[in-house]
């Protein structure tokens, strides 16, 4: 069924493509949000991803896993979004959602600590390249197999493994700097 949808979309069937969009829009948005850290950027990158995928559907080959192909476009859309944002000074502040918390916000100091920790993490994460952010998200959050992760940037698995180690080390260094 899924493969049939992809085939129909590739042939230009918008209804089929819309069906693929509906089942993936939240996942693509969340990945974009984890990488970019701002709702507006994530929404733009998500839209850019699907519009670009539709525009270039002819380039999808029979042997290409659709999700890996879409993931690669999403990664490029995130890169593009960061480049655009790099020219702007506006930064979006995400407010903590009380519902996100595992425990009641009864202790103001604990909340402050968590907020500071999250803020430091976001600043450190923003120091990483998009590719490093992506592999960390795909591995540590989405727990994708290495072969799937490698298919997104189109890199050899060995490269992904080394990039994961390197990205983790870079994040730790950035976090250490944030807490100095």
């Amino acid at each position: 069924m899924e493969r049939e949808l992809v085939e129909r979309a590739r042939a230009g069937d918008r209804d089929a493509f819309d069906a693929l969009v509906r089942t993936r829009i939240d996942a693509v948005y969340r990945t974009s949000l984890a990488i970019l850290g701002a709702d507006a950027d994530a929404a733009d990158a998500t839209q850019e991803t699907f519009v670009s995928a539709w525009s270039h559907r002819d380039a999808l080959r029979d042997s290409d896993p659709f999700d890996a192909w879409l993931g690669r476009i999403n990664l490029n859309a995130c890169r593009q979004q960061l480049r655009r944002r790099g020219r702007k000074s506006v930064r979006e502040i995400r407010l903590a959602d009380p519902d996100d918390r595992a425990e009641p916000a009864s202790n103001d100091r604990a909340i402050d600590d968590r907020t500071a920790e999250a803020d430091a993490f976001d600043r450190a994460f923003a120091r990483l390249s998009v590719d490093d952010r992506a592999v960390l998200v795909l591995h540590h959050l989405q727990e994708r197999p290495v072969a799937e992760i490698a298919a997104v940037p189109g890199s050899p698995e060995g490269t992904i493994k080394s990039r994961l180690h390197r990205a983790r080390a870079a994040l730790e260094s950035a976090l250490a700097q944030e807490w100095r």
Binding site: I25, D26, V28, Y29, R30, T31, L33, A34, G37, D39, A43, T46, D97, D100, A118, F121, D122, F125, L136, V137, H140, L141, R168, L171
Partner: peptide, 13 residues
Amino acid sequence: LRVQLARRSAGRA
């Protein structure tokens, strides 16, 4: 790291 990334990506489109 997973907790922090989950926080960053919380939400729906």
